Computed example of a mutant assay.
Amino acid sequence: MIATAPVPSQPALVDAHGRTIRYLRISVTDRCDLRCRYCMAETMTFLPRRALLALEEIAIIAERFIARGVTKIRLTGGEPLVRRDVGELARRLGARIGRGLDELTLTTNGTRLAGHAAALHAAGVRRVNVSLDTLHPDRFRFITRHGDLAQVLDGIVAARAAGLAVKINTVALAGLNEDEIPSILAWCTSEGHDLSLIETMPLGAIDEDRVDRFVPLTRVFERLATDFDLIRDAHRTGGPARYWRVAGTNTRLGLISPLTANFCDGCNRMRLTTEGKLYACLGHDEQVDLKAALRGGGVAALDAAIDHALAIKPARHAFAIGPGAAPAVARHMSVTGG
């Protein structure tokens, strides 16, 4: 039986390096209905459903983080919208907006967004990040192995119609979409979307060599700067991106570059997996089992486990891409959450 009685607020979430944790990313499932080549192997083994946190447990953990100072929560996966009760979770957490929580967001591949956009807005979500690496249907199908671009674009239209701001997340991939990135940014400016470009991260074994696909964002930015008037912007969302505004538009361009411009000094994040493991860093294996703590000792044990995670959070990740280099960690991005 899970103890849910109120417990006095604990000290703020400050790690051993003096960084205050304000941002929790929650992977509600490791499952995804796509198989993007840079993220997953074509054949994946997912967690059995009995291993996952129950919705009530996710909510209790999230609410405890809010009580200790987290102001932003992102629901992610895998693909969060494949979990049937994700709408109920969004409603429960959305009810905390203005009562400790400033923002509730969601990252999605967009395939199911059209059917969920209105409910997400009603729950309190005001922005979604949509993973989209190309605007060419055939290329999209190749990158995702079987995806339908039209579904994603319909989802984006539905999101905007429901009142959700949309930020596009694009992983820069040599030989796949590097040539298209200026066109993607131009499309974002015409549609009123922000765009975040991301360097591919060495997480989990995949069927391809990441060295062949890695594109440094320094190179991408140099190309974009010749086509667009980019003005440095001090805007921060609580994530690792550095921002520029595209002059004459409402679009911001964000760069997330874990390999060419390490951003760990300002890290304010922790990640909760769908099975209840709290990872202090995306690029390390240090974690604590919040599911075991909650089920074994209730909220007091949960607080103690969170404190332990703060103590072991490393100063920086150890990402590296090169010939023969193994992934930084064995788990795939879909396990920890984007």
Results as ranks from 00 to 15, higher is better:
G266Y: 05
G163W: 01
M333N: 09
T170D: 05
R25F: 03
M270H: 01
T107L: 11
L272P: 12
E57R: 09
L47A: 13
K167N: 09
Y243H: 15
T108Q: 05
V130K: 12
T144I: 04
L113T: 08
R96A: 14
A117Y: 12
T107V: 13
G248S: 12
G87Y: 02
P6E: 03
I26C: 05
L203R: 03
R242A: 14
A123L: 08
T45P: 10
R331M: 01
P48W: 12
L294T: 12
V152G: 01
R68K: 08
D209Y: 09
L230A: 07
N109R: 07
L272E: 06
A293I: 07
R242F: 08
T105N: 01
T249A: 10
L272H: 11
G69D: 00
G322P: 06
H284D: 11
A62C: 15
I184A: 01
A292V: 08
G192H: 08
M201H: 04
L75G: 05
G110H: 13
P8G: 00
L302K: 01
P240G: 08
D15L: 06
G283I: 00
H116I: 00
E42C: 01
H116E: 06
P11E: 06
L101C: 04
N129L: 10
D148Q: 14
V299Y: 03
R295T: 07
T249G: 09
A150F: 01
L224E: 13
R83D: 14
Q287W: 02
E222M: 12
G110Q: 11
D15A: 05
A159T: 03
V28C: 10
M270P: 00
H116V: 00
G98M: 03
R83S: 13
K277M: 14
A301Q: 04
V329Q: 12
A118F: 02
G77L: 06
P323M: 07
K167A: 07
N177T: 11
A261Y: 06
R316T: 15
F140G: 11
I58S: 02
P80V: 05
L75S: 07
P6S: 09
T218H: 12
V335R: 04
D227V: 15
M1R: 12
L224K: 00
G115A: 15
D229E: 14
L153W: 03
L55T: 15
L302C: 04
P11I: 02
L255V: 05
L310M: 08
I26S: 03
S27H: 06
K277G: 07
D194Y: 05
F65Y: 08
V86T: 08
H235D: 13
C32A: 05
T76Q: 06
I168A: 13
F221V: 03
F142T: 13
R210N: 00
V211E: 15
R252L: 14
Q287V: 10
L113E: 04
T43H: 12
G175S: 07
S190C: 08
A59M: 06
T260Y: 06
E63C: 09
L55E: 12
F46R: 06
D265C: 05
D138P: 07
A95Y: 07
D207F: 05
E63L: 10
L104W: 03
